[in-house]
């Protein structure tokens, strides 16, 4: 045990100072592209209109790199409803409705020592009954519709629904969005969203200003 502690001490503090400071790093093509030059036609998800990119549709494919470049902006979410009562503690239940696996592992990364979401009062729980926020990831498969609805119904108030990534926000290029089953309170853009983008969206949804 002492050797583990020694190793930990040798590594020093690696945890991010975000949101007090800017993020140390961000995955370029997981942030919203911004217009630079020339017109671009042929976005595979029809996310670009009048040189503006719709974060619900953008799948971070980078096909527009001749005209757009990544914004590197951590603010890549739409907050439709915030909940200040959850400011000090937010318990998250993750529901995989048909994901490719990338969003699952990005959420898992939030608990690593670089992000350490617990320091911000954010925790994962194993049942929706204990959750304040439902994170839906992936396109909505037919058989998961009932599961999503049941999970939401047994959550206590106040509660928030996060549509994480392009899949539940717009259906991506693979299937159906969350629309019509649940109304998302927060939409997080990216495919998959960078962990700093997820943290920023959570902070904004509970009334913190990043």
């Amino acid at each position: 045990m002492s050797r583990w502690i020694l190793r930990g001490l040798k590594k020093g503090i690696i945890t991010s100072r975000f949101p007090k400071n800017e993020p140390e790093t961000i995955s370029p093509w997981s942030t919203l592209p911004v217009y630079m030059k020339n017109s671009y036609k042929g976005c595979p998800t029809d996310a670009i209109h009048n040189n503006e990119v719709d974060l619900r549709r953008c799948i971070s494919c980078g096909r527009c790199s001749s005209s757009f470049s990544p914004s590197l902006n951590v603010n890549n979410s739409i907050i439709l409803r915030s909940e200040r009562y959850l400011k000090k503690s937010l318990k998250i239940y993750v529901l995989d409705a048909g994901s490719c696996g990338a969003c699952n592992t990005e959420l898992h990364a939030l608990s690593n020592p670089f992000y350490d979401m617990n320091r911000l009062g954010i925790f994962f729980v194993n049942t929706p009954k204990q959750a304040d926020a439902l994170f839906v990831i992936g396109v909505l498969s037919e058989q998961m519709k009932r599961v999503v609805k049941e999970a939401y119904d047994i959550m206590a108030e106040p509660k928030l629904v996060f549509a994480m990534g392009a899949c539940p926000a717009s259906g991506n290029i693979l299937g159906s969005s969350l629309s019509g089953i649940l109304d998302a309170d927060v939409i997080i853009g990216g495919c998959p969203p960078d962990p700093f983008v997820i943290l920023n969206a959570i902070m904004n949804a509970r009334g913190d200003v990043s």
């Binding site: 930990g8 790093t25 370029p28 494919c61």
Partner: peptide, 26 residues
Amino acid sequence: AFHLNALRERIIRLAAKAFGHRYFFG
């Protein structure tokens, strides 16, 4: 698990730096 998780984050950040995306999309 924490030590390993930090290592995985470092390799994924390297991927983002070298290839522009944490999961090599695009």
